[in-house]
Structures are given as C-alpha cells and as structure tokens.
Write a protein that binds this DNA or RNA. Structure first.
Lengths: 226, 226
DNA sequence: TGACGATCCGGACCGAAGTCCGTTTAAGTA
DNA sequence: TACTTAAACGGACTTCGGTCCGGATCGTCA
C-alpha cells in the first residue's frame, strides 16, 4: 500500500502493462499463467512474444533479446511488446515467471524440508539452498531481468520470497527484526552477488551453500549465557 | 587478478578511461584525487566536467545529469566526457569519490571507534553505522551511481569497504567464511536497500541502525554451550 | 447480423548512452 | 624555435529503450 503510489505514478502510458504475480492470493499456485481477461489477439501475441524471446535467448543469449528483435521475431509491432510487458525487464521477468511460481509452490505446499511439515529452521536452510541453485541455473536471465534499483524490492516475485522468509524467521527468531533480517538474508542470495562469487571469483556453489547454512545458524543462534 | 580479464575486455575504445581509486595503496589517503599524469587541457576539462555535473545535480537532480547536458554545461565535446569517465556511472562515481576517500581515511586512520584503537567488534559496529548514514546522505547519487550488476562488486570503492569489513571480521569471527560474511553484511547496507526501506517503507534510520547492530551481534556471537 | 465501444495493433518518433574517427594540441626533443 | 607524436578533442552517428496516436479488431448486445 505504501508503494502503490510510486508504482502507479511510474506506470507506462498504456492502460496497464501486465501485473506480474497479480494472482489474488499465493494459494492458487500451479494454474497456468498468462492473464485470463485478455483479448484473443492479445493472448496470442503474448504467447508468440514469449516464445520468440525464448528462442532469441537460446540463439544469441540474453543480450540478443532486443525489444525490436523480439517484436520482429514474433511478427508483431514494437509497441505491442511494451504494452504487454511494460518494459524489457517485464518481458524477462515473464520468462522467469514459470520457474518462480514453481519455487513458490514448492515452499508453500511442497514436500518437506522445503514445504510445510519440517521444523522452521530446516525449512530456512532448504529455502536458501533452493533459491541459490535456482538462481545459479538461470543466472544470465536472472541478472538481465533485474529491474532498476528503485523497483528491485517492489516486485511481487521478490516480495513473495521475502514474505516467506520473514514468516520462517518469525518462527525461529522471535526476538529480532525479522523483516530486516529477511532482507539481509535475501541479499546474500542476490543474483548479482551469486554471479560475482561464482563467475568472477570462481567460488564453487558448495561454498555458497555452506555459507548460507552458516549464516542461518549464526542468525538464529540464541544468546550465549551471561 | 581474477576479474582483470573481465574488465579489460569490457573496456571502452579509448586508451583507458579513468581508474577510480587507482591509488597504489590504501595508505596514501588524503591526497587530492584527479589522476596526476593528465595533460593540462585534460585536467582542466575534467575539473570543468565535475563542476558542471555537480551544478546540474543541484539544479535538476541526478536525472538531469545527461552526458550531453554535462558536456554542454562544461563547454566540451560529448566524447570528452566518455573518454575521461568511461560511462555515466563513472562520472557519478567520480562525484562520490571525495566522500568515499574520506570515509576510507576515517576507518583506516581516523579516531576510534571507527579507526584503529577500538576493539574489532566496536569498529565493526561503527563501520556499519558510518556507511549507513553516509549512504543515506547521498542516497540519490549513490543510487544513480550504482553500476550494472556485473560490475557492482568489482568497483574499487566497494572493494575497499569489503576488504576492511573482511579484516574486522577475521578478528572477530575467526571461524566462519569471513569473505562471504563480509559480502552479506555489506549487502545489508546496499544503497538500493536503504532507499527501499527508508523511502518506500518509511522506516526510520534508527531502525536500520539497530538492525545493523543486531545483525553484527548475531553474526559474531559464539556458539552456545552444548 | 450490424453496429458500437473498449481494447489492441503497429511503426514512426524521441531522447540518451555509447562509438568512431578525422582534426587539434600539449609537451617533450633537437 | 621547429618538429614530432602521443594524447586529447568534438560532434556526427548508431543503437536501443521507451512513447504516441491514428487506425484496425475483438467481443458484445440489440
């Protein structure tokens, strides 16, 4: 509610691009994405655009995904791409949408230790590891899909991760500012950081994984006596 | 050495833009910045450009700092701006350079608790608080000066902060992966995050400060018995 | 079926970052 | 002072993200 103002004021001139993760509640995961109330031609073009974008990525890497190129490859006008996805990161986010929803479904309703059933601390551990490997898998795309700094934390996908993390923290670290702790923990799983550590510093994923587990252990540790 | 390759391969066509914080060692802080071996005209233009950029920011905000606008305001060709600063973030970084060096000087050689003399844990606390408030002061500029994700961690200014933080951590958390811990702690002081928390969530700085102190306490806490 | 209004389409257009290269100039050297 | 050359200059040019708006289309309701 706080940033609703910010978002609408920065909105494109079009009626409304596409609200990512606009599904009413986090509960109805698993349904096919793609905005139900979409005119037939619009829906068709949306699908074509996503397909074209995916093809371009496969052929020329993320850098090859130019708004014009996608439009051309989908045999559609450039304006259409922007109307549907708002901007370039919106398009890239949409490509990640499926995987994002799957992850969400996994930690909301999947089997333990990621899903409910396991003790919170274990879920916390599993959460980080899951995010870590998912991010590593799609690193280039995740990196390119990163919106500008002023919107990074507003995006619903990021919000969902954070909300879940906060919830787990509340069950594990009842004292302590769980909202901010969640931000910090999530920051340590940031795609840009993972990129830097694995590709520029050449650290193995195992080390990042161990660091996550260690971090969780430290953060959730109770006060020493005295 | 690892990313030297990356950097040079992504370098502009010019001989070499301007290496920020290229000063041989962290020890010689306090000297006037501005690349010593610079031809007279180049040095003059550099100064003019920085002055013009600062003026533009004062008048129209960071958004008003267009490469062309700066060039025009400094009565200089556009190419000159790029040759000197590499790209827009390079220019903005240069504007932050002075404050960055001051902070660096403070924690390298200033009075305790920030500088040497205080116990590491206290320096750690003071470090975060100092970074926090410095960032908050120049939030817009810091935000705009943020380079793209693939260079965020490579920049020498960020490296200096991280190196110092790592050093303090080694003295405080001898077990544990201090390099990665430093990354995590720094991430919790990220300008984009501070912007989000203070401006979009309207949290008071005191809360962020408290969260930093709490985080440091948790991370440096020793194992509970048992 | 016909017509109407909301929605969507397309591509010309714009602004700004970044590149290129022919020209100029600072600053040693004889 | 005249010469040389590495360095610097400037601005036209390219590319790409994002905007605009007149015209085409879909879906609906009579």
């Amino acid at each position: 509610m706080l940033y609703a103002v910010d978002m609408s004021s920065a909105l494109p001139p079009f009626p409304k691009p596409e609200e990512p993760f606009a599904t009413p509640s986090l509960l109805e995961v698993g349904m096919a994405p793609g905005e139900p109330g979409l005119r037939a031609d619009a829906a068709r073009n949306r699908a074509r655009l996503l397909e074209a974008a995916a093809r371009l990525i496969a052929e020329h890497g993320v850098a090859g995904v130019t708004m014009e190129a996608v439009a051309a490859a989908a045999d559609v006008g450039k304006g259409t791409v922007f109307r549907r996805f708002g901007d370039r990161t919106g398009l890239l986010m949409a490509l990640l949408d499926h995987s994002a929803r799957r992850l969400q479904a996994d930690f909301l309703g999947g089997p333990p230790p990621l899903g409910p059933g396991a003790p919170p601390l274990e879920r916390l551990r599993a959460f980080g590891v899951a995010v870590l490997y998912r991010t590593a898998e799609q690193l280039d795309l995740q990196l390119a899909a990163q919106p500008d700094p002023t919107r990074r934390f507003i995006h619903p996908a990021a919000g969902a991760l954070r909300a879940h993390l906060t919830m787990l923290l509340r069950q594990t670290v009842p004292d302590g500012d769980c909202d901010l702790l969640a931000h910090t923990l999530l920051a340590s799983l940031d795609p840009a950081l993972i990129h830097h550590l694995t590709r520029q510093c050449e650290m193995p994923m195992e080390r990042l994984e161990a660091a996550w587990l260690d971090l969780v252990a430290r953060v959730t540790r109770t006060d020493p006596p005295g």
